[in-house]
Simulated scan of single mutants.
Amino acid sequence: MTQSPLAQDIAMGSPVRLQTVSAVGQPEVTPALEELYRGFEQELLVPLWTEIGDLMPAHPRSRAAAHVWRWERLRALAAQAGELVPVGRGGERRAIALANPSLGGRPFATPTLWAAIQYLMPGEDAPEHRHTQHAFRFVVEGEGVWTVVGGDPVPMNRGDFLPQAGWNWHAHHNATSEPMAWIDGLD
């Protein structure tokens, strides 16, 4: 049986490999620095002064491309889904994720933002759930729907922006005679 590269690295000591370099903003290369870096490797530590350029680049390097999703078409497809897809967990609250064309068809608007259209038909209740990500809702159309966060009802109306901290139980209820649509976002 062959080992994965990671398993081989761990068996050899550590997958962390650090190089001392003589450069502006880096510590002077000495035997003591080499010894320090070997200690970091053994404990699976990476000093940020060796990585800062990749961790915090001066300019974003997103693979996402600018794209415009047309509301009229999204709304029509969401209404069609409202007729065909149940809102329960099987329909995952009828969320229709935006897929950035440069991210390989995955359900992400950007590499760090998941966004979707939520569509709640009259009389429907989206099941209570929670997630680790922070969320926001921007109501595009409709009024009189309630989102219930931690047992507290919060009204949702066209134009409202509702941020919500992660890990809070929440559900949505439409007691009106009209559907409601909003943009959901998760970080």
Rank of each mutant, 00 (worst) to 15 (best):
T132V: 06
G142A: 09
R94A: 05
Y37A: 10
L48W: 02
V145D: 03
F138G: 03
L44M: 12
A79V: 08
E141R: 13
E72G: 02
R94G: 06
L55K: 05
A99Q: 09
V87S: 10
E128L: 03
I117Y: 04
G166T: 11
P111W: 04
L18Y: 07
R73Y: 10
W146H: 14
V140T: 07
Q19R: 13
E43T: 11
A66C: 03
T30F: 05
I10D: 05
I183M: 13
F138Q: 10
L36C: 00
D125F: 11
G150D: 15
P57V: 10
E128W: 03
E72F: 00
V24F: 04
A116H: 05
W146S: 11
W114F: 00
G142F: 07
M1T: 12
A58W: 04
M121L: 03
G53M: 02
D187A: 08
P111L: 07
G53D: 11
H129L: 04
D187T: 11
A64K: 02
Q26H: 15
A109M: 07
N100R: 04
V85G: 04
P5S: 10
F136C: 12
V140L: 14
R137K: 09
H172Y: 10
S22Q: 09
D54I: 02
T147R: 12
D54E: 09
E41Q: 15
L77R: 11
H173D: 00
G185F: 02
R70H: 13
A79F: 11
F136Y: 13
F161I: 15
P57K: 03
V16M: 09
E41C: 13
T2V: 08
N157W: 01
D152K: 14
E34G: 01
E51H: 02
S4F: 00
Q26F: 15
F138C: 08
P31A: 08
P155A: 12
H131S: 06
A97F: 14
H172I: 05
I52A: 09
Q26N: 11
T50M: 05
V46M: 12
L162N: 12
G185R: 02
H129F: 02
E141V: 12
A126G: 15
W167D: 15
G90W: 01
Q42T: 10
V139A: 07
A97G: 00
G104Q: 09
S14V: 07
E43P: 00
A76Q: 14
M12N: 15
T50F: 00
E83G: 09
Q8A: 11
R38S: 09
E28L: 14
R158Y: 00
G123I: 03
E34A: 13
A116C: 08
W146V: 04
L33K: 08
A181F: 05
H172N: 06
P153T: 06
E128Y: 01
L18T: 12
A65M: 07
I10G: 03
A181Q: 15
A175M: 06
G13T: 09
P155E: 12
L84G: 00
R130E: 06
G90A: 13
A81H: 10
W114L: 04
R61W: 01
R63D: 13
G142N: 09
G25F: 03
L18N: 11
E72A: 14
E35F: 02
A58K: 13
D125Y: 12
P153H: 06
R93T: 02
W146R: 14
F136S: 13
G25A: 10
D184C: 01
A115E: 03
A11V: 02
D160R: 07
R106D: 10
I117S: 05
E41T: 11
Y119Q: 04
A11D: 14
V139W: 04
L18R: 09
T50C: 03
